[in-house]
């Protein structure tokens, strides 16, 4: 679900935004910085909700911009643990089922949290729930793109900011300094800043039927 997070930040307003009203310019700068980014231990920031307080603006010698300390609230996507959500299956692999909400992708259901018994079908590259009924076993395939209901069991935040030495200077890779920057970028891309781990809402057989295409006939 969505929550509000209270934050404060010294906003730098560049001179070409001086024609805007101060609040407008501040909201614009904050949205530029925050929208669609994951903040460590806060969640996925969506947009600025409101401005609570603005302190005096000041100018720093050698910089044409104005700086204003702003207290504001931000709309953040942060599901609570145990929350039930509905998403779509993005892909499946041996590591589990990956689920997307459209605006948030880093959701994984590990194999041990899928219904029991489940197996991974190598041919189809899909997870299959072997649903048992009186007249035998049914294979329920979890197709990509199907809706799925799941429960949030854990969240993992990873700090993906550039590695800093204690002095605040970015650490360089062993490679030449020019290529160091790009490889830094790559590693931070492959790290997932905010990962939700889920289990399928297992006592909800009714829902799962809507999420899984049923294969009853031919085998």
């Amino acid at each position: 679900m969505f929550v509000l997070a209270e934050m404060k930040h010294a906003v730098r307003i560049p001179p070409w935004n001086f024609n805007l009203k101060l609040t407008e310019a501040v909201v614009k700068e904050l949205n530029k910085k925050l929208a669609n980014t994951v903040m460590l231990n806060v969640g996925l920031c969506i947009m600025v909700f409101d401005i609570m307080k603005m302190e005096e603006s000041y100018i720093i010698p050698g910089d044409g911009a104005s700086h204003t300390k702003v207290h504001f609230r931000c709309v953040v996507f942060r599901p609570t643990i145990e929350e039930i959500l509905v998403g779509k299956i993005k892909s499946s692999s041996r590591e589990g089922v990956h689920v997307t909400l459209g605006f948030f992708d880093d959701i994984v259901i590990p194999p041990e949290s899928l219904q029991h018994p489940s197996r991974f079908d190598e041919g189809e590259q899909l997870w299959v729930w072997e649903y048992e009924t009186e007249d035998g076993k049914h294979d329920l395939f979890m197709d990509s793109g199907e809706e799925i209901r799941f429960r949030v069991t854990a969240e993992t935040f990873t700090d993906t900011s550039p590695m800093m030495s204690p002095g605040g200077i970015p650490l360089k890779n062993d490679a030449a300094s020019s290529s160091g920057a790009t490889s830094d970028n790559e590693t931070s891309k492959s790290m997932i800043p905010y990962l939700l781990t889920m289990e399928k809402a297992h006592n909800a057989v009714v829902f799962l039927m809507t999420g899984i295409h049923m294969d009853t006939g031919n085998d």
Binding site: V3, M7, M47, R73
Partner: peptide, 23 residues
């Protein structure tokens, strides 16, 4: 950026949708 309180209120989906519609 300093986080004062990471969860000061809950928003319903309806409220968020209204905000996003404005954007």
């Amino acid at each position: 950026m300093e986080v004062v309180k990471d969860n000061c209120a809950y928003l319903s989906n309806y409220e968020v949708l209204q905000l996003l519609k404005e954007v």
